[in-house]
Amino acid sequence: MKKNYEIIVYGRGGQGGKTTAELITQAAALKEKYVQSFPEFGPERSGAPVRAFVRIAEEPIKTHQSVQEADCILVLDETLLETDKLKSDLSDYFLERGVMVVNSKKTKQEIKSKFSGKLEVIVVDATGLAEKIVGESRPNVVILGKFAQTTKIVDAEDIMTVFRSKYLPKIGEDKTEKNIEAIRQSALSEEV
């Protein structure tokens, strides 16, 4: 039984991958979980593929290695599904028991057929939904809602609370509420 619940967030610089990891972490911390999150440390350029890692546990987390056996992989940009790096992150453990949430307009079947194993694949048009509700194409808020709904590792309500406290002073009431609505709708919506 794995002691740590481990998540890898895949995105391109500028898509909010690091923020996604941070928000999950803070939401878990609200429920007094032990947490750890860090981005992959590499050259930071807009558009470059980046990973962010999250660990959530009931006991203090000791290790500092990057996530080797993810329980959940969140993919903000589906072109990253084709990269060697993502493919090498698909451990046997993940392919058997993991959950993948992918931002894509394709069907669940199309995406799932890329992988072997019993992993659960959730597909959501996060970019489209974000454009509709928030008016911006950043997909991370929708992915967060689906993550909360599917894995139940953190509550969508907690993600919304953390989002509000972090972003209200930065982006104002209107944008904050729109983003929160995107999280809410995503967390409640039926799967496609």
């Binding site: 803070q26 911390a29 032990y34 947490v35 750890q36 987390i61 500092h64």
Partner: peptide
Amino acid sequence: GFITSHSVEN
């Protein structure tokens, strides 16, 4: 550097 300075922990 980075591993502690830029990582979130309790």
